[in-house]
Design a binder for these strands. Sequence first.
DNA 1: TTTACTGCAAATATTTTGCAATATC
DNA 2: GATATTGCAAAATATTTGCAGTAAA
Lengths: 154, 154
Amino acid sequence: MVNTDVYSADKMREILTAYLEKKAFRKTIERYTILECICCMPGHFDVETLRKYVTENHFRVSLAAVYNTIELLMDAGLVVRHQFSSRTVQYELKCAALTHHHVICSYCGSVSEVKTEKVKIATDCKIPKFTPEYYSLYIYGMCSKCKFREKIQL
Amino acid sequence: MVNTDVYSADKMREILTAYLEKKAFRKTIERYTILECICCMPGHFDVETLRKYVTENHFRVSLAAVYNTIELLMDAGLVVRHQFSSRTVQYELKCAALTHHHVICSYCGSVSEVKTEKVKIATDCKIPKFTPEYYSLYIYGMCSKCKFREKIQL
DNA sequence: TTTACTGCAAATATTTTGCAATATC
DNA sequence: GATATTGCAAAATATTTGCAGTAAA
């Protein structure tokens, strides 16, 4: 059973600390600040938006540090990556991502969400030689706007 | 109910033709050749590999045409995009993708597959204002190799 | 004949890397 | 004090675009 609670910023800081200690990585201000900022950002974000947010609200960080840190936070299990369309890579707090799946309109590219409880994923067989930790489901289709647009053009 | 048959190359050519006619796009040799080549390629492929394959086996196509055509084939519902890791965008025939979900090791990045029938996805509620057409499920976790590696290091 | 599509090369966007400076351990 | 991590800028990579030429309708 996967835990779908949204963690507090405190809890996440603890997880990051435990991860850094286990891996013997350094506890830099940048790493904690970037995590802090991610916790403050609502929903999805991209690298540029995150960097702007950090820089404006706290202090200057280099692009390299942002990329490094996101990679590290993904490895620590705190952040996940999404690629909804070819252009933009987006990220999201993993504990937030666990609460919903993504619903993507193939026609206009709009992204919405559906609560995890409303979708059941059941693996009949255990996957051989694999221990699942996280399911990421993307539901593609046509949103009502595009459906309407299609209708009136016929 | 989603059709999970793997189409023949003929069937796909027909689908492409119907799509091009409906949209009043032109039937260029490049479009048919690229689709043909995709049908010959086993499993996933990236833009560069596809282009190399087309060029080596048939005739020279520009990168721009490859990008254009992949975009078009995705719109036609013949091809889907995957992004398993940050580096590589991969594509796959949609009718092939429908037969399996992707199982990705978060630690070493290896990608394997699990048959669609072995995983049940059930939406309890209809998704409001949305018509689903295609489900894409990524199962992240730890493969046996990484599990073993982790074990012997403890 | 018209113009959508291609090829080519340049432009843009995104991500990574090398190296010196800095901060953590 | 040793060195992992940062900042910066340059390099590498991936994708898009402008324009002239070609070919589909």
